[in-house]
Design a protein around this nucleic acid. Structure first.
Length: 569
RNA sequence: CGCGGGGUGGAGCAGUCUGGUAGCUCGUCAGGCUCAUAACCUGAAGGUCACGUGGUUCAAAUCCCGUCCCCGCAACCA
């Protein structure tokens, strides 16, 4: 029997600067947790991510940094890679959208769309900056708002009075890139994807997702359909991107949002090309019935993944794999406001990892994931959760059990006695809780899943408190052996259940118990079997503290330090 | 009347689709325990579920209507 194939993708982080905790919780981390969980379930998982590199934003960033855009992307790709490794993200492949592979797939898809009549040409008017020698996107034009007088209004919208603007409305319009006011309106020809022609097919497909997708994902998609789709421009007057493969358009490139989602496929091909004899990207993308495809993204990405990308694939007439389940996440806010890459507000992933171990962040972010609505980050809340859940409940349980065992029975799984009624009750309760936790993980209900995980830990402390082994050991050593033996087995249980969320901590726990740490499998057996697996006399190591508390002083210091904007990169 | 999401004890959230005595975690207070990282366990206080003392109903946090507030998006920003 072949294992079920699971294709898992995280929205591709934009290359410009490093991601912040909002990006981490919005797509990168939940996709990693799910990928790890599914691997432990025995599924054949392919987990794909990469950097999204094309477009004006990276051109501008490179210009500011004073390096060629290719070099800028090369450097930042490596920085992204390091950060994700620091967070223990277990991508099977972290690729890029600017590769030959992605170009090949992009051309294949765009050619098909042209052949099938889903592409049309239109001439539009756009602002051209003479000094920059390029067309400017509306948001790269700054000027004074004609309505409120705000002098930094953007060509698409005034951030001060929120009025939607046309760049020609601006007074003293200038290029955001160079500051030049030498702007003129020019005509330019572009390609548009005829979404209108694909509307009914899209609608039919989306309707099948109504009761399975998260509210935030389905409602956003539905909103776009209900408003009626319009042709969407898929080319740009830029240099950095894939040149359009159509005569007369050689000086233009595909729009970043056209080739970015195609990047999932291009990156899969990058992965496949590294070991062509063992891997075949087509098995994952062109055999829809063999694969279950799950996408993770923040809500801002939803329209592109529910409307434009599926429409793009449908329009080819080929049998591309479309997303089966879309996990759309809301936003994490920072002290009530929003994280901002452009404003450098919030905590960025490279900073986060310098402050605390990855598992602290991973646990907190998943326990507070913005699933049904936005959720907010504060250092106070962060410290509360880490101190209570990880340090006091989980960490202390492991420490008290191993120390008590060591002082009474030596550093090994104690011998003596047999499980009794209280153990039976524990098995029953844990079977139930582990079942809940597993279901929530399968359903990607992460907050609820972590609630169950925490309950499981608490159940460990409960069992100890109820049975008072420190008293029992003085009168009935066999009984104490049973209690502690069961508790040590629970540490193994906790390690396995925590592995998708906190891989480092899980590994440490298993190492404490002298158990293998690779290729872990999920709990299959019932607790009556699972909690009696460790052999009598199996040696464990001297316990070390897995977590340490975050002091109020530290919280205050961090709150002050991160209130200010980040100085530079 | 642009669109979507949200407004539930001090904080963070679940419950709303499928009406039926308001639930979880943290915090607070009290008690227990003393093996363990002053950790663990138990119990209690605290909410008329944004507002209209609106409509439907035997019954509304839940359905309907109206208003206010917060967050995000608004198709040339990733």
């Amino acid at each position: 029997m072949n294992k079920q194939k699971y294709l898992i993708t995280s929205a591709l982080p934009y290359i410009n600067g490093l991601p912040h905790l909002g990006h981490m919780v919005g797509c990168l981390l939940p996709s990693d947790v799910y990928a790890r969980f599914m691997r432990m379930q025995g599924a054949d998982v392919l987990y794909i991510c990469g950097t999204d590199e094309h477009g004006t934003a990276s051109e501008v960033a490179a210009l500011k940094a004073g390096v060629p855009v290719q070099q800028y992307c090369d450097e930042f790709h490596e920085k992204h890679k390091k950060t994700y490794a620091d967070f223990n993200l277990s991508f099977d492949y972290l690729g890029r959208t600017s590769t030959e592979q992605n170009k090949e797939i992009t051309y294949r898809i765009s050619s098909k769309l042209m052949e099938n009549g889903y592409i049309e040409e239109k001439t539009i008017k756009q602002i051209f900056s003479v000094d920059d020698n390029q067309f400017l996107a509306d948001r790269y034009i700054t000027g004074t708002c004609p309505y409120c007088g705000y002098d930094k209004a953007r060509g698409d919208q005034c951030e001060n009075c929120t009025k939607v603007l046309d760049p020609t409305d601006l007074i003293n319009a200038r290029s955001t890139i160079s500051g030049s006011t030498n702007l003129e309106v020019r005509e330019t020809k572009h390609l548009f994807l005829k979404l209108t022609a694909l509307q009914s097919e899209l609608k039919k497909w989306l309707e099948t997702k109504e009761f399975t997708w998260p509210e935030v994902a389905y409602s956003i998609a539905q909103k776009w359909l209900n408003e009626g789709l319009q042709p969407r421009c898929i080319t740009r007057d830029l240099k950095w991107g894939f040149p359009v493969n159509k005569p007369g358009f050689e000086n233009k490139v595909f729009y970043v949002w056209f080739d970015a989602p195609i990047g999932y496929i291009g990156i899969t091909k990058q992965w496949s090309d590294e070991k062509p004899t063992e891997r075949n990207w087509e098995d994952w993308w062109l055999k829809p019935d063999d694969v279950h495809y799950v996408e993770f993204m923040g809500k801002d990405n939803v329209p592109y993944h529910t409307i434009t990308f599926p429409a793009t694939l449908m329009g080819t007439g080929e049998n591309w794999k479309l997303v089966d389940y879309l996990k759309g996440m809301s936003y994490l806010t920072f002290n009530g406001g929003k994280f901002s890459k452009s404003e450098q507000i919030g905590i960025f992933c490279d900073q986060a990892i310098e402050e605390f171990p990855a598992d602290y962040w991973r646990y907190w972010l998943m326990a507070n994931a913005p699933e049904s609505s936005d959720s907010s980050f504060t250092f106070e809340g962060f410290a509360n959760t880490i101190n209570k859940d990880l340090n006091d409940v989980l960490g202390n349980f492991i420490n008290r059990v191993l120390k008590m065992t060591t002082s009474n029975f030596g550093q090994q799984v104690p011998d003596g006695g047999v499980a009794g009624d209280d153990e039976e009750a524990l098995y029953t309760r844990l079977d139930e809780l582990v079942g809940d936790y597993t279901s929530y993980m399968k359903e990607m209900e992460f907050r609820k899943a972590l609630g169950s995980l925490r309950e499981i830990w608490v159940e460990g402390n409960n069992y100890i408190a109820r049975n008072e082994p420190w008293k029992v050991v003085k009168v009935d050593k066999d009984r104490a052996a049973v209690i502690l033996r069961t508790a040590i087995n629970m540490i193994r249980l906790f390690a396995i259940l925590s592995a998708p969320i906190m891989p480092d901590t899980s590994k440490k726990m298993l190492q404490l118990l002298n158990l293998p740490t690779d290729n872990l499998l999920w709990v299959g057996a019932s607790m009556s079997e699972f909690l009696t697996l460790l052999e009598i006399g199996h040696a464990f190591n001297t316990p070390e503290l897995l977590f340490s508390k975050i002091t109020p002083e530290r919280v205050e210091e961090l709150s002050i330090r991160y209130k200010e904007k980040k100085e530079n990169e």
